[in-house]
């Protein structure tokens, strides 16, 4: 009889203890629960206060990270209905152009144009995508890949909405600290909102459509209508990001439909972990600053970036967040198996 060992995975004691209300009785358990959450939330909230300490450049990087995080959350919600999008730039660009148009021609202030652009943009995107919601997987992805380019070329060819020059001189936003706090507030609202949504009965339908849409149809639910609603809801943060950045840059142009706004959110979500919104957030806050640091390497930056992406997709498809979460909650120990 030989004895071999296998590794057993068990929850940490502190996880079991802090799973119920009694966690409130001990500082250790409270800290265990709150520390990782507060690290993220507190870190993001405190960052704008570093204004005097860090270069203003890094505040702009933070703003970019928040923008990508919003687009990543939007991508992740669409993915949770089984719609894999390669064109979040469409949401970003449409939000940007609506707010740009309202601001430049009607001279409306940002606190009116941004909300209007957010809702109208998401509605427009959902309407545009409605006919193709019957497509699944790669076919839907291909359509979304082509749509931002379609808008780019329309604007270039017809010279509407400023043509290749775009619309500039828009009303600026108040100073960067306030701007940062506004986008951070929206980011957290989206993050916690989406988490609630996907755990509700309504969100369950979304996940059901991703897992087995035939069964959802058989349950008497119109999946195309639900998918359209999902696209609208997912579109809100993305069009907001577009509208917000347009006012921040005081400019909107064809660059709003750039592939960056499609690719960066996607990679952020993949690196952070698909299906958990915290993963999308984590990915964006890691990737955007890293990509800025790597700017020093010029073109090599893209190479490093691509290698990192390949490593994650092949080696750790669960993403950083799930990996870290598991290590935090569980430990492993060898147990003997008798043969």
């Amino acid at each position: 009889m030989t004895i071999t060992f296998r590794k057993e995975r068990l929850d940490r004691g502190i996880k079991a203890r802090s799973a119920d209300i009694y966690a409130l009785a001990s500082w250790r358990e409270l800290a265990y629960l709150l520390a990782p959450r507060m690290l993220l939330i507190g870190g993001v909230l405190a960052f704008p206060l570093l204004r005097g300490l860090v270069d203003a450049y890094w505040l702009r990087v933070m703003l970019m990270a928040c923008t990508i995080a919003l687009l990543a959350l939007s991508w992740d919600l669409m993915a949770s209905v089984g719609l894999v999008s390669l064109g979040q730039a469409m949401f970003f660009g449409i939000g940007g152009y609506i707010t740009g148009y309202l601001s430049s021609t009607l001279k409306w202030p940002p606190f009116i144009t941004i909300p209007i652009a957010t809702v109208a943009g998401a509605l427009l995107c959902a309407t545009l995508l409605y006919p193709v919601l019957r497509l699944r997987g790669i076919y839907f992805a291909l359509i979304t890949l082509s749509l931002p380019q379609l808008f780019e070329r329309i604007i270039e060819a017809t010279k509407i909405l400023g043509g290749t020059d775009g619309m500039s001189g828009l009303t600026p936003l108040p100073d960067i600290t306030i701007s940062l706090y506004v986008i951070i507030a929206v980011l957290f609202a989206t993050f916690f909102g989406f988490r609630r949504l996907i755990d509700s009965d309504y969100g369950l339908v979304f996940k059901g459509i991703r897992d087995n849409d035939r069964s959802v149809i058989a349950a008497g639910i119109n999946i195309y209508w639900y998918k359209a609603q999902a696209v609208f809801i997912a579109g809100l943060p993305a069009t907001f990001a577009g509208a917000f950045m347009t006012h921040y840059n005081q400019f909107v142009g064809m660059s709003s439909f750039a592939a960056d706004y499609s690719v960066l959110p996607l990679t952020s979500t993949v690196v952070g972990g698909i299906g958990v919104f915290a993963g999308a957030l984590l990915g964006a806050f890691l990737l955007v600053p890293i990509s800025e640091v790597l700017r020093a390497y010029g073109t090599l930056r893209v190479v490093i970036y691509c290698i990192a992406l390949v490593v994650f997709v092949v080696g750790r498809p669960e993403g950083i967040f799930r990996y870290a979460q598991r290590k935090y909650h569980q430990f492993e120990r060898p147990v003997a198996v008798e043969e």
Binding site: R6, R316, E318, R326
Partner: peptide, 12 residues
């Protein structure tokens, strides 16, 4: 293993 899902142990 790559996905970080369930660990499968085979002996024998």
């Amino acid at each position: 293993e790559r996905k970080g899902g369930e660990r499968i142990t085979v002996t024998g």
